[in-house]
Amino acid sequence: MVEKEIVIDLANYQKGLTVSDYKKIGAKYAIVKATEDTNYINEQANLLINHSAAGGVKGFAFYHFGRFHNDAKAISEAKYFISGTKKIVNLQKGALMILDAEISNMPTSSVIAFLKEIRKAGYKAGFYTYKYLLPNFNLKKIKPYMDFFWLAAYPLGNGVKADKNPNFNYFPSADYVDLWQYTDNLLGYEVDGSISVTDNAIKLFNPEKVSKQDAPAPHKASATWKKKSGVFVLGQNLKLHKNPHIDSPAIAMLKKGSEVKFDATLQGPLRLWLRQPRSGGSYGYIVAKDKYGKLLGKFK
Protein backbone atom coordinates (compact mmCIF):
# COMPACT_ATOMS: atom_id res chain seq x y z
CA MET A 1 0.00 0.00 0.00
CA VAL A 2 1.32 3.44 -0.96
CA GLU A 3 2.00 5.69 2.01
CA LYS A 4 0.51 9.03 0.99
CA GLU A 5 2.42 12.14 2.04
CA ILE A 6 1.75 15.84 1.61
CA VAL A 7 4.44 17.75 -0.30
CA ILE A 8 4.57 21.54 -0.49
CA ASP A 9 6.38 23.61 -3.08
CA LEU A 10 8.01 26.89 -2.18
CA ALA A 11 9.08 29.99 -4.11
CA ASN A 12 9.90 33.49 -2.92
CA TYR A 13 6.13 34.13 -2.60
CA GLN A 14 6.24 31.99 0.55
CA LYS A 15 9.15 33.83 2.18
CA GLY A 16 6.74 35.22 4.79
CA LEU A 17 5.88 31.78 6.18
CA THR A 18 7.21 31.29 9.70
CA VAL A 19 8.50 28.19 11.44
CA SER A 20 5.19 28.10 13.29
CA ASP A 21 3.31 28.17 9.98
CA TYR A 22 5.28 25.19 8.69
CA LYS A 23 4.57 23.27 11.89
CA LYS A 24 0.85 23.90 11.43
CA ILE A 25 1.00 22.84 7.77
CA GLY A 26 2.73 19.63 8.88
CA ALA A 27 4.41 18.65 5.60
CA LYS A 28 7.55 16.50 5.71
CA TYR A 29 8.69 17.17 2.14
CA ALA A 30 9.16 20.29 0.03
CA ILE A 31 10.14 21.21 -3.52
CA VAL A 32 11.92 24.56 -3.68
CA LYS A 33 12.15 26.83 -6.71
CA ALA A 34 15.81 27.38 -7.52
CA THR A 35 16.00 29.01 -10.95
CA GLU A 36 14.10 30.31 -13.98
CA ASP A 37 15.23 30.79 -17.58
CA THR A 38 18.95 31.68 -17.54
CA ASN A 39 18.67 34.90 -15.57
CA TYR A 40 17.01 34.16 -12.22
CA ILE A 41 18.29 32.47 -9.06
CA ASN A 42 16.02 32.31 -6.03
CA GLU A 43 17.98 34.15 -3.33
CA GLN A 44 15.25 33.23 -0.81
CA ALA A 45 15.94 29.49 -1.16
CA ASN A 46 18.03 29.14 1.99
CA LEU A 47 15.50 31.12 4.01
CA LEU A 48 12.70 28.87 2.74
CA ILE A 49 14.70 25.71 3.43
CA ASN A 50 15.84 26.76 6.89
CA HIS A 51 12.39 27.86 8.07
CA SER A 52 10.61 24.83 6.63
CA ALA A 53 13.24 22.44 8.03
CA ALA A 54 12.82 23.99 11.47
CA GLY A 55 9.08 23.50 10.99
CA GLY A 56 9.35 19.77 10.29
CA VAL A 57 10.24 19.37 6.61
CA LYS A 58 12.90 16.66 6.31
CA GLY A 59 13.32 16.08 2.58
CA PHE A 60 13.89 18.54 -0.27
CA ALA A 61 13.88 18.63 -4.07
CA PHE A 62 14.33 21.57 -6.45
CA TYR A 63 12.59 22.91 -9.54
CA HIS A 64 13.37 25.15 -12.48
CA PHE A 65 10.75 27.21 -14.33
CA GLY A 66 11.46 26.53 -18.00
CA ARG A 67 11.31 29.28 -20.64
CA PHE A 68 12.77 27.42 -23.63
CA HIS A 69 11.30 26.65 -27.06
CA ASN A 70 14.16 24.67 -28.61
CA ASP A 71 16.66 21.98 -27.65
CA ALA A 72 19.71 24.23 -27.44
CA LYS A 73 18.01 26.65 -25.03
CA ALA A 74 16.69 23.68 -23.01
CA ILE A 75 20.22 22.40 -22.50
CA SER A 76 21.51 25.84 -21.49
CA GLU A 77 18.65 26.22 -18.99
CA ALA A 78 19.37 22.77 -17.52
CA LYS A 79 23.02 23.74 -17.02
CA TYR A 80 21.94 27.02 -15.45
CA PHE A 81 19.55 25.12 -13.15
CA ILE A 82 22.40 22.95 -11.91
CA SER A 83 24.97 25.73 -11.49
CA GLY A 84 22.41 28.11 -9.99
CA THR A 85 21.18 25.59 -7.45
CA LYS A 86 24.76 24.89 -6.40
CA LYS A 87 25.16 28.59 -5.62
CA ILE A 88 22.32 28.62 -3.10
CA VAL A 89 22.40 25.15 -1.50
CA ASN A 90 24.78 22.28 -0.95
CA LEU A 91 23.47 20.25 -3.89
CA GLN A 92 24.23 16.53 -3.60
CA LYS A 93 24.54 14.03 -6.42
CA GLY A 94 21.33 12.06 -6.82
CA ALA A 95 19.13 14.98 -5.71
CA LEU A 96 15.76 15.30 -7.44
CA MET A 97 15.73 18.22 -9.92
CA ILE A 98 12.45 19.00 -11.66
CA LEU A 99 11.52 20.87 -14.82
CA ASP A 100 8.43 23.07 -14.39
CA ALA A 101 6.88 23.09 -17.89
CA GLU A 102 3.89 25.42 -18.03
CA ILE A 103 4.50 27.75 -20.95
CA SER A 104 3.04 27.28 -24.43
CA ASN A 105 4.95 25.86 -27.41
CA MET A 106 7.51 23.91 -25.39
CA PRO A 107 8.54 20.97 -27.62
CA THR A 108 8.69 17.42 -26.31
CA SER A 109 12.18 17.06 -27.80
CA SER A 110 13.35 20.05 -25.76
CA VAL A 111 11.86 18.64 -22.55
CA ILE A 112 13.80 15.44 -23.21
CA ALA A 113 17.00 17.41 -23.90
CA PHE A 114 16.58 19.19 -20.54
CA LEU A 115 15.96 15.97 -18.60
CA LYS A 116 18.88 14.20 -20.26
CA GLU A 117 21.20 17.03 -19.22
CA ILE A 118 20.02 16.71 -15.59
CA ARG A 119 20.65 12.96 -15.59
CA LYS A 120 24.01 13.34 -17.31
CA ALA A 121 25.13 15.55 -14.43
CA GLY A 122 24.25 12.83 -11.88
CA TYR A 123 20.84 13.96 -10.64
CA LYS A 124 17.34 12.49 -10.73
CA ALA A 125 15.20 14.18 -13.37
CA GLY A 126 11.59 15.19 -12.72
CA PHE A 127 8.88 16.63 -14.98
CA TYR A 128 6.00 18.88 -13.88
CA THR A 129 3.09 20.30 -15.83
CA TYR A 130 -0.65 21.01 -15.65
CA LYS A 131 -3.29 18.55 -16.79
CA TYR A 132 -4.64 20.98 -19.39
CA LEU A 133 -1.15 21.19 -20.96
CA LEU A 134 -0.69 17.43 -21.34
CA PRO A 135 -1.88 17.43 -24.97
CA ASN A 136 1.15 19.62 -25.76
CA PHE A 137 3.57 16.84 -24.78
CA ASN A 138 4.23 13.26 -25.82
CA LEU A 139 4.37 11.74 -22.37
CA LYS A 140 5.34 8.28 -23.64
CA LYS A 141 8.43 9.73 -25.28
CA ILE A 142 9.32 11.71 -22.15
CA LYS A 143 8.82 8.79 -19.75
CA PRO A 144 12.21 7.03 -20.36
CA TYR A 145 14.03 10.23 -19.43
CA MET A 146 12.16 11.18 -16.25
CA ASP A 147 12.49 9.60 -12.82
CA PHE A 148 9.48 11.44 -11.42
CA PHE A 149 6.24 12.88 -12.83
CA TRP A 150 4.38 15.62 -10.98
CA LEU A 151 1.00 16.73 -12.34
CA ALA A 152 -1.17 19.68 -11.33
CA ALA A 153 -4.98 19.65 -11.45
CA TYR A 154 -7.08 21.68 -9.01
CA PRO A 155 -10.54 20.17 -8.48
CA LEU A 156 -11.63 23.09 -6.27
CA GLY A 157 -10.23 25.81 -8.54
CA ASN A 158 -7.46 28.35 -8.00
CA GLY A 159 -7.20 30.05 -4.62
CA VAL A 160 -9.75 27.87 -2.86
CA LYS A 161 -8.67 26.70 0.58
CA ALA A 162 -8.09 22.94 0.67
CA ASP A 163 -7.23 20.50 3.44
CA LYS A 164 -4.79 17.60 3.40
CA ASN A 165 -7.36 15.08 2.19
CA PRO A 166 -8.00 15.62 -1.54
CA ASN A 167 -11.00 14.02 -3.20
CA PHE A 168 -9.52 11.27 -5.38
CA ASN A 169 -12.67 11.23 -7.49
CA TYR A 170 -11.01 14.21 -9.17
CA PHE A 171 -7.61 12.57 -9.61
CA PRO A 172 -6.30 13.53 -13.09
CA SER A 173 -6.49 10.62 -15.52
CA ALA A 174 -2.92 10.45 -16.81
CA ASP A 175 -0.16 7.86 -16.91
CA TYR A 176 2.96 7.72 -14.74
CA VAL A 177 1.83 10.25 -12.09
CA ASP A 178 3.94 10.12 -8.90
CA LEU A 179 2.77 13.34 -7.25
CA TRP A 180 -0.57 15.14 -7.67
CA GLN A 181 -0.64 18.88 -7.01
CA TYR A 182 -4.28 19.38 -6.05
CA THR A 183 -4.34 22.89 -4.55
CA ASP A 184 -2.58 26.24 -4.59
CA ASN A 185 -3.96 27.19 -1.17
CA LEU A 186 -3.22 24.40 1.29
CA LEU A 187 -4.91 25.04 4.65
CA GLY A 188 -5.27 28.72 3.71
CA TYR A 189 -1.52 29.39 3.70
CA GLU A 190 -1.40 30.17 -0.05
CA VAL A 191 1.13 27.42 -0.58
CA ASP A 192 0.82 24.73 -3.26
CA GLY A 193 -0.07 21.33 -1.85
CA SER A 194 0.53 17.94 -3.49
CA ILE A 195 -0.01 14.36 -2.42
CA SER A 196 2.14 11.36 -3.27
CA VAL A 197 0.45 8.55 -5.19
CA THR A 198 3.41 6.19 -5.65
CA ASP A 199 6.20 4.99 -3.37
CA ASN A 200 8.63 6.42 -5.92
CA ALA A 201 7.43 9.95 -5.17
CA ILE A 202 8.74 10.00 -1.62
CA LYS A 203 11.66 7.60 -2.11
CA LEU A 204 13.41 10.25 -4.19
CA PHE A 205 13.15 12.78 -1.34
CA ASN A 206 14.44 10.44 1.34
CA PRO A 207 17.93 8.95 0.98
CA GLU A 208 17.22 6.37 3.68
CA LYS A 209 14.70 4.64 1.40
CA VAL A 210 16.90 4.25 -1.67
CA SER A 211 19.98 2.19 -2.30
CA LYS A 212 23.37 3.61 -1.40
CA GLN A 213 24.25 3.69 -5.08
CA ASP A 214 21.32 5.94 -5.93
CA ALA A 215 20.92 7.87 -2.71
CA PRO A 216 21.54 11.59 -2.52
CA ALA A 217 23.58 12.54 0.54
CA PRO A 218 21.61 14.14 3.38
CA HIS A 219 20.68 17.68 2.47
CA LYS A 220 22.73 20.37 4.17
CA ALA A 221 20.63 23.43 3.70
CA SER A 222 22.03 25.89 6.15
CA ALA A 223 25.49 27.22 6.83
CA THR A 224 26.64 27.40 10.45
CA TRP A 225 27.73 30.36 12.56
CA LYS A 226 31.40 30.45 13.44
CA LYS A 227 32.74 32.21 16.51
CA LYS A 228 34.94 35.06 15.31
CA SER A 229 35.36 38.51 16.83
CA GLY A 230 36.34 41.68 15.05
CA VAL A 231 35.35 45.10 13.80
CA PHE A 232 33.82 45.83 10.39
CA VAL A 233 33.93 49.35 8.93
CA LEU A 234 31.03 50.06 6.56
CA GLY A 235 31.93 51.16 3.05
CA GLN A 236 28.36 52.33 2.42
CA ASN A 237 25.09 52.87 4.30
CA LEU A 238 23.78 49.47 5.42
CA LYS A 239 20.83 48.12 7.40
CA LEU A 240 21.36 46.39 10.71
CA HIS A 241 18.83 43.54 10.49
CA LYS A 242 16.82 41.77 13.18
CA ASN A 243 17.51 38.38 11.57
CA PRO A 244 20.20 37.11 9.17
CA HIS A 245 18.23 37.28 5.95
CA ILE A 246 18.07 40.17 3.53
CA ASP A 247 14.31 40.83 3.87
CA SER A 248 14.41 40.88 7.66
CA PRO A 249 13.22 44.15 9.28
CA ALA A 250 15.90 46.73 10.06
CA ILE A 251 16.88 47.65 13.61
CA ALA A 252 18.71 50.70 12.29
CA MET A 253 20.29 52.21 9.19
CA LEU A 254 24.02 52.54 9.78
CA LYS A 255 25.97 55.19 7.88
CA LYS A 256 29.09 54.70 5.80
CA GLY A 257 32.15 54.70 8.07
CA SER A 258 30.28 53.20 11.05
CA GLU A 259 32.11 50.50 12.96
CA VAL A 260 30.31 47.27 13.84
CA LYS A 261 31.75 44.99 16.49
CA PHE A 262 30.86 41.37 15.72
CA ASP A 263 31.28 38.07 17.56
CA ALA A 264 30.37 35.50 14.85
CA THR A 265 30.16 35.08 11.08
CA LEU A 266 27.83 33.18 8.77
CA GLN A 267 29.21 32.44 5.29
CA GLY A 268 26.66 31.51 2.64
CA PRO A 269 27.50 30.57 -0.96
CA LEU A 270 28.52 34.22 -1.54
CA ARG A 271 26.82 36.44 1.05
CA LEU A 272 28.59 36.92 4.41
CA TRP A 273 26.70 37.89 7.58
CA LEU A 274 28.18 39.34 10.77
CA ARG A 275 26.51 39.07 14.18
CA GLN A 276 26.56 42.08 16.50
CA PRO A 277 25.89 41.46 20.23
CA ARG A 278 23.35 43.89 21.67
CA SER A 279 21.94 44.67 25.09
CA GLY A 280 19.68 42.14 26.78
CA GLY A 281 21.32 39.19 25.03
CA SER A 282 19.89 40.05 21.61
CA TYR A 283 21.76 40.40 18.31
CA GLY A 284 21.79 42.52 15.18
CA TYR A 285 22.95 41.23 11.80
CA ILE A 286 24.72 43.01 8.97
CA VAL A 287 25.80 41.98 5.48
CA ALA A 288 29.56 42.20 4.96
CA LYS A 289 29.53 40.61 1.50
CA ASP A 290 26.54 40.86 -0.84
CA LYS A 291 24.90 38.15 -2.97
CA TYR A 292 27.66 38.54 -5.55
CA GLY A 293 30.44 38.12 -2.98
CA LYS A 294 31.35 41.84 -3.08
CA LEU A 295 32.82 43.18 0.18
CA LEU A 296 30.73 46.11 1.47
CA GLY A 297 33.39 47.58 3.75
CA LYS A 298 36.62 46.52 5.38
CA PHE A 299 37.71 44.55 8.41
CA LYS A 300 39.67 46.56 10.96
Rank of each mutant, 00 (worst) to 15 (best):
M1I: 10
Y22M: 05
K140E: 02
F232W: 11
R271S: 03
D199E: 15
G122T: 10
N167L: 04
A27I: 08
D37E: 12
A101H: 10
G94E: 04
D100N: 15
G94Y: 10
R67G: 01
D290R: 14
T35I: 09
I202D: 03
F127D: 03
R278N: 06
N70Y: 10
N105S: 14
D184I: 13
K120D: 01
F65D: 03
R271C: 01
I82E: 07
V32C: 13
A101S: 15
K141E: 13
N200T: 14
A215T: 01
F81V: 10
S76W: 05
K140C: 00
S104R: 13
G284L: 06
N206T: 07
D71W: 01
A264D: 05
A27S: 14
G188W: 06
L139Q: 00
L99R: 03
D163Q: 07
D147K: 14
N90C: 00
F262K: 02
V2F: 00
K73I: 10
A54E: 12
W225K: 07
Y40L: 12
G193E: 00
P244C: 08
V57Y: 05
Y189K: 15
L133I: 01
G281L: 08
K86R: 15
V7M: 07
V260E: 01
I98T: 10
Y123V: 12
D192G: 09
F65Y: 15
K209I: 01
K24M: 05
L266P: 05
G157V: 12
K33N: 04
N206Y: 02
S196T: 15
K220N: 07
S110D: 01
N138Y: 05
I82T: 10
S194R: 01
Q181T: 00
V260L: 12
A217E: 13
A174I: 08
Y285W: 08
A54L: 11
Y182Q: 07
K242Y: 11
L139E: 00
W273D: 03
N39H: 11
K86A: 03
Y189V: 08
R278T: 08
K73A: 14
S104Q: 13
P155G: 09
V260P: 07
G84W: 07
A61G: 11
P107W: 08
S173V: 12
V7H: 07
L96R: 10
I246N: 01
Y283E: 01
D178R: 12
K294M: 09
G297W: 06
M106A: 13
P277M: 06
N105Y: 13
L296Q: 14
I8D: 00
A95N: 13
K291L: 10
K298I: 03
P172K: 01
A217H: 10
D178I: 11
D100L: 14
N138R: 11
H51F: 03
K298T: 08
N39Q: 04
D214F: 11
Y132K: 07
V287R: 09
N200M: 02
D214N: 15
V177F: 05
A30K: 02
Y132D: 02
D163V: 09
N138P: 05
K140G: 00
L17K: 11
P218G: 02
Y29V: 13
F65E: 04
I251M: 06
I246S: 12
